[in-house]
């Protein structure tokens, strides 16, 4: 579904991603871990098409297409969903309006008629239940005044509305209380289908108890320095990142 090959990227001249290769097949869930500042969010944002980083080298192929050539909205319509680490507040833009535009743009892209107002509201209601989001939130402006946890839940709600093929969830678990964590994880699992995939960025193995990953990667200093099965997350939880950093630096100096 997604193939990243030797991706290098810089922000303001500073190289952040230093050659990332990764393949996500349909139906797979990949966990992406790594210390603060290692480049996880940068990678996620590049995949979603945010134009803040300059891609220096490498290719990204998504469903056979060159992803890097597509504008952000087209990637979204093609089924890529980014759950933001810091969802932005947009005062004055109501959730309903916002989601209606998004859903209808997606439908138009697929050659479908826009949803009628009543059908749309019905869909909202269904999805709200699915992710157990407080229905009052949907009546407010996008993320405005939401608590940290509410914002994250709102991301999952939007994911449910847009039914992506590839979901990239950037620390969607941070800031959630225990129940919310379960709800978010359930939401992700409920939306899971054999043909959909996810990249889950997290610092905590806890989330991975709910969303069981097929592969775990560790990103360090702009490189994927370790890839293994689920057990890697548990090991990291116990031992921290020091040993990985040491290994990585050793490898680096060997080069």
């Amino acid at each position: 579904m997604l193939t990243i090959n030797n991706l290098k990227a810089a922000i303001n001249g500073k190289v952040i991603l230093k050659g990332i290769s990764l393949e996500v097949k349909a139906g797979e869930i990949h966990a992406l871990m790594g210390p603060n500042g290692s480049g996880k969010s940068t990678l996620a944002a590049i995949l979603a098409g945010r134009e803040f980083a300059e891609v220096l080298e490498g290719t990204v192929t998504y469903m056979g297409k060159n992803l890097l050539e597509m504008p952000a909205e087209e990637r979204s319509r093609e089924g890529i969903f980014l759950g933001f680490q810091y969802p932005i507040e947009i005062p004055g833009v109501s959730m309903v309006n916002f989601m209606k535009s998004a859903v209808n743009e997606h439908r138009k892209y697929k050659g479908l008629e826009p949803l009628s107002a009543s059908d749309f509201l019905k869909l909202m209601r269904e999805k709200k239940e699915l992710v157990e989001i407080d229905s009052k939130l949907a009546n407010r402006s996008v993320n405005e005044g939401f608590s940290g946890g509410e914002k994250k839940k709102n991301e999952i709600f939007q994911m449910a509305m847009l039914e992506p093929k590839l979901a990239i969830l950037d620390e969607t678990d941070s800031g959630l209380d225990i129940d919310a964590l379960r709800i978010v994880a359930n939401g992700v699992n409920k939306l899971r289908r054999p043909d959909t995939s996810a990249i889950v960025i997290t610092h905590y193995q806890r989330l991975l108890d709910y969303i069981i990953p097929d592969v775990v990667h560790v990103l360090y200093d702009g490189r994927i320095v370790k890839t293994a099965g689920r057990e890697l997350a548990i090991e990291l939880e116990e031992k921290g990142y020091d040993w990985i950093k040491r290994d990585a630096e050793k490898n680096n100096s060997d080069e």
Binding site: E51, A72, I88, I90, N97, E105, Y109, V142, L162
Partner: peptide, 19 residues
């Protein structure tokens, strides 16, 4: 904010209008 809207599939033009 523009990027957030675009990342949900809304075109740039539309996103600007919405904002």
């Amino acid at each position: 904010a523009l990027f957030y809207l675009q990342s949900r599939g809304i075109s740039k033009h539309e996103a600007r209008l919405m904002l």
